[in-house]
Design a protein around this nucleic acid. Structure first.
Lengths: 175, 175
DNA sequence: ATATATATCTTAGTCACTAAGATATTTAGC
DNA sequence: GCTAAATATCTTAGTGACTAAGATATATAT
């Protein structure tokens, strides 16, 4: 087998392995939502809040791709569950910041213990240098996926007659 | 900074980077569903079918965590869209295999082009040896997440009084 | 043969979502 | 300052995917 062919095969194998593990990751998130008794989108918003900190309702809509109306419902449920608090911005009183209630981290964190333990076990098999390579890859991968998402969203802004269409259901443009 | 402290910090950074890129990966999938005009679960089932090949309706329910009734709806929609075909098993006529229509791969594949290009760019920055490390990690990570998912599901089978409960909504046991 | 188990489908009801518009507040133009 | 346009969130009505429970059809076991 030629040198380039070997690499091409490696790349393909890598792509499938990434796809498989990523799909399983999605499933883990769904299982968390199911076990925690919380809707999938609600959990996704909690995740965004955990990563980005205190954000506005509009920002949640932007990141999740949901309408602002849907976010109102999400925040209503999360607030009722005591996981977040609405905090009106005094500087701009139209804005509503959503802040995670401190205990919420613990209450949800327990569901990620199996995942953390699994990852500790996996990471344990690598040297510091190898972990740095994985970290570099994770960061580069994040940037790549971010760019790919933006590129894909761009398709929605291209004229429909020039866009490939599956005719599965009516297309929706991002607000 | 001590040697072990450096590793602990590295591990934490790695965990967050993985979490972030994984969250963005979820978002890419949602964007695909949105752009393709297909429900999220329907796309997830297409992904499973792509990875596992021809599987039964029951297997789809098992993997996705949806009820068999919901899968009936998923397959109805996918079949109407011309993406899959129902094929009754002659050996056991209760079973219905779901098979992907060959063209469906192309029809959906186009939405993954931005992602593939992004990944090619990222992978391009690594040597064959480094890619083999990434492949190894992806495979180990998959096994880890699989185990973590199973462990988490196990929580549903523990008696409710011994289980941490968020009291967010009524819990549902997997069928 | 009968009972039990398995695999999918059907039905009724629930809940999260979108689209459109209402409300409240800020910013820009005159 | 006053009015118009822009922005941020919420409200309402309607839609569609989901669950739970049970129906149907086929297979397996006693």
């Amino acid at each position: 087998m030629s040198r380039t062919k070997a690499r091409a095969a490696l790349l393909q194998e890598l792509e499938e392995a990434m796809r498989r593990s990523s799909a399983q990751g999605v499933l883990y998130g769904q299982t968390v939502a199911n076990v925690a008794g919380i809707a999938n989108s609600d959990l996704e918003c909690m995740d965004i809040l955990y990563l980005e900190g205190r954000v506005t309702a509009g920002r949640l809509a932007e990141v999740t791709g949901l309408t602002t109306g849907a976010i109102t419902g999400v925040v209503d449920r999360l607030e009722k569950a005591g996981l977040v608090r609405r905090e009106r911005d005094d500087a701009d009183r139209r804005k509503v910041f959503i802040a995670v209630v401190p205990e919420a981290i613990e209450r949800l964190g327990q569901f990620y213990v199996p995942m953390q333990q699994a990852m500790e076990r996996v990471f344990g098999g690598y040297s510091d240098q190898e972990l740095r390579l994985l970290l570099h890859f994770a960061n580069e991968g994040y940037k790549g996926v971010l760019a790919a998402t933006a590129a894909l969203k761009g398709l929605l802004d291209t004229p429909p007659e020039k866009r490939p269409d599956l005719k599965l259901k009516k297309l929706r443009r991002q607000p």
